[in-house]
Amino acid sequence: MSRLFPAPLLSVALFVLWLLLNLSVSPGNLLLGAVLGILAPILMAPLRPQHAHVRRPWAIAKLIGRVGLDVIHSNLLVARGVLRAGSTPPRSAFVHIPLDLRDAHGLAALSMITTVVPGTVWSELALDRSVLLLHVFDLEDEKAFIEHFKHTYERPLREIFE
């Protein structure tokens, strides 16, 4: 079973992607999508050095919802900051964040989240993955920001990936 489906989630995602791209659920497309979903992960298996172990689907759903809300919220904040940049320049700063998350996939997800949310850009990660350099668009309180960051993003990712 695990030889046939080395990455079941990837197979399902490819299958759905194929159907969405073709906009039909005709038998031919279902078959082609299934072939793609089964063959592509098998062919790609030698290229992937390590497998992700994803747990707790509920935590994932909660995290995605949280990120969606944060994106909308920080979009409005950044838009306001841009429009007011003439009178009150944004207090941009680099922040060093000590990390407890070590899993490579978790860190990849974290970098995706920080970059997708406007207002924070992932800039650099120490080689031993212990410190993260983050650029923040409008920083009010460094301590509170680090606390918020670790609580809302890092902790759920640790639950999911570790």
């Binding site: 950044v78 941009s92 970059t115 949310v117 850009v121």
Partner: peptide
Amino acid sequence: AIGLVRLKDFFQRMHPPALASTI
């Protein structure tokens, strides 16, 4: 785009493009 033109520092300018690619 306004942010891309108006903001002073390069790292500040990295933030506004996220507006178009997300919301």
